[in-house]
Simulated scan of single mutants.
Amino acid sequence: MTLRAALLLALAPAMAALPAVAIAQVSQDPAAAPAGTYNVDGRHASVIARIGHGGGSSLSTFRFGTVSGSLDWNPAQPQASKVNVTVDVKSIQTPIAGFADELIGDTFLNVAKYPTATFTSTSIQRTGPTTGKITGNFTFMGVTKPIVVDARMVGAGKGARNASVVGFSGTTKFKRSEFGYTSRLGPIGDEVELLLDIEFNKPAPAAG
């Protein structure tokens, strides 16, 4: 008997005792997710920022891991939906030990004074069956200005726990200097690109 076969036999009783998990059923039809208020699934949401470094010689990438917010979803008229997202700036992540602590300090993101960045939609223009431009107010470093997110609905339907789900991917760009964030302009770029991947879900109604 091979080692792999022996492990499978040993694990079989435990695996058989695990509860069955329904397979998610999603599509690219907006109507697959019913109307209502959905919340950001923090386990399946991330915001990635890219910014020039070295006077334009390369791009540095950072991930913000703590995201919250909600979506008022209108599947019949997706352009009538509304969304708000809040990013915990302190949740910035980098692969360099100690660098995140430097970034959240006074010289850079100053999270003690500006702990969050927020986006609240003001209008949505549908550009295709699953795409659109979401205009909204972006608040960063205490300054609020309009930005536009190019968004794509990745999927909608029922999740693995029978919750209604709808997920989006989006991109946007802004100049940090327009928000008063001018620390080390030149060596560090002005334009920031954001890549957003966010899943929203609505729990299934309680039985009985």
Rank of each mutant, 00 (worst) to 15 (best):
I96Y: 05
K113A: 13
K90P: 04
V83A: 05
V89E: 05
T131Y: 04
D101R: 10
V85C: 03
T86D: 09
S121M: 14
V85R: 03
F108L: 06
V111A: 04
L109T: 01
F99I: 02
I124V: 15
S91M: 00
S121V: 02
S121P: 06
D101L: 06
P129S: 13
T118L: 01
T94N: 01
P129R: 01
T131D: 03
S81T: 14
S121N: 09
F119V: 02
T118S: 04
I92Y: 04
V85T: 00
K113N: 11
I92K: 00
K113R: 11
D106W: 08
G105P: 05
T120L: 07
T120F: 04
I124P: 03
T116W: 10
A112R: 11
P95I: 10
I96R: 08
T130D: 12
V111D: 02
L103K: 08
T86K: 11
I124L: 12
K113I: 05
T120H: 07
S123Q: 12
K90Y: 11
V83Y: 02
V85Y: 06
I96P: 00
I96H: 01
G105N: 04
V85I: 10
K90E: 15
V87P: 06
D88G: 12
I96A: 08
T118V: 08
N110K: 02
P129T: 14
I104M: 09
A100Q: 08
A112S: 10
Q93H: 11
T130S: 08
F108A: 01
G128E: 04
T122C: 10
T118K: 04
A112C: 06
T127H: 03
A97G: 04
T130P: 03
L103M: 15
I92D: 07
T130E: 10
S81P: 07
T127E: 05
D101V: 09
D106G: 09
V87N: 03
D88W: 07
E102C: 03
F99P: 02
A80V: 12
G128P: 10
I104H: 02
K90G: 13
I104S: 06
N84S: 13
P115I: 07
Q93F: 09
Q79D: 15
E102Q: 13
D106N: 12
Y114C: 11
I96W: 11
Q125L: 14
I92H: 01
G132H: 00
P95E: 00
I92G: 06
Q125R: 14
L109V: 01
T94Y: 05
L109Y: 06
Q79N: 14
I124D: 07
Q125M: 13
S81N: 09
N84I: 03
G132E: 10
Y114F: 15
E102A: 13
S121L: 07
T107D: 14
Q125N: 14
G98E: 00
A100Y: 06
T127Q: 02
T130V: 13
N84M: 09
A112G: 12
Q125T: 15
L103P: 05
S123M: 09
P115L: 10
L109C: 01
T131M: 02
K90H: 11
S91D: 03
A97H: 06
S91N: 02
K113D: 12
